[in-house]
Amino acid sequence: MLKKSILAVLTLLVLTACSNKKDEISTEDRAKVIEDGTVGFEMVGGNVEKATNVPAAEEKAILASFDEYIAALNAEDINRYMQSISKNPRGFKYDEEKTYAAEVFDQFDSKREVENVTIAKYKNEEAEVFANMTMHALQVETNIEHESAGRQVTVFVKEDGSWKVTSVYYIGDDSKSSTGQ
């Protein structure tokens, strides 16, 4: 039972910017969102195709915002993290996210490693950043370690001239997850 609850919490850790309300976006709804082209990416031989319509300056700004989002999560700095989040996000509520993230930062020591960071979709005021992600976490109270891996699409919107996280979609790879002491 403890392992299952830790896995559930750690899945939420990976999603941190995804809302702590389980019933808000179901797996089925996420699949529909991806199928209808609202959020998603195409894979070619295991690689994500890079969007070809991203202006160079915007690409640099979007990737810098993604790097800051990950760095803020890894630093477990609530103020820095919340600066990377849209004030009007889709899929979660800003104030609830701040409370939830602070609780997670208190309960876990976690680090995220990202690879294959690619802007997979771009529109004038929105960008989808794909990344392979591995998360290492230690539950402070129990000293139980967990590692999980998966693919994440982080959706950014341009807000007051800066790129901010508005939603996150994550698909875990159970074959690369482990829990231990």
Rank of each mutant, 00 (worst) to 15 (best):
N20Y: 12
N20D: 08
D23Y: 13
D23Q: 12
D23C: 06
E24S: 04
E24K: 05
E24C: 00
I25V: 14
I25K: 13
I25T: 12
S26C: 02
T27D: 07
T27H: 02
T27C: 01
E28L: 00
E28G: 00
D29T: 06
D29M: 00
R30V: 08
R30P: 03
A31I: 09
K32G: 10
K32P: 11
V33A: 13
V33Y: 14
V33W: 11
D36Y: 00
D36K: 11
G37E: 07
V39A: 08
V39N: 11
V39D: 03
V39F: 11
G40N: 03
F41L: 14
E42N: 10
M43H: 05
G45Q: 07
G46T: 07
G46R: 06
N47R: 14
V48C: 13
V48R: 02
V48M: 09
V48T: 10
E49F: 07
E49H: 04
E49R: 10
K50R: 15
K50N: 08
K50H: 04
K50V: 02
K50A: 12
A51H: 05
T52C: 05
T52G: 15
N53A: 08
N53M: 06
V54C: 01
V54Y: 00
P55L: 07
A57H: 04
A57D: 10
A57I: 08
E58W: 00
E59C: 03
K60M: 06
I62E: 00
I62R: 00
L63Q: 09
F66L: 03
F66K: 10
E68N: 15
E68G: 14
Y69N: 08
Y69I: 05
Y69G: 11
I70Y: 09
I70M: 15
I70K: 15
A71N: 15
A72M: 06
L73W: 04
A75T: 04
E76P: 12
E76G: 14
E76N: 12
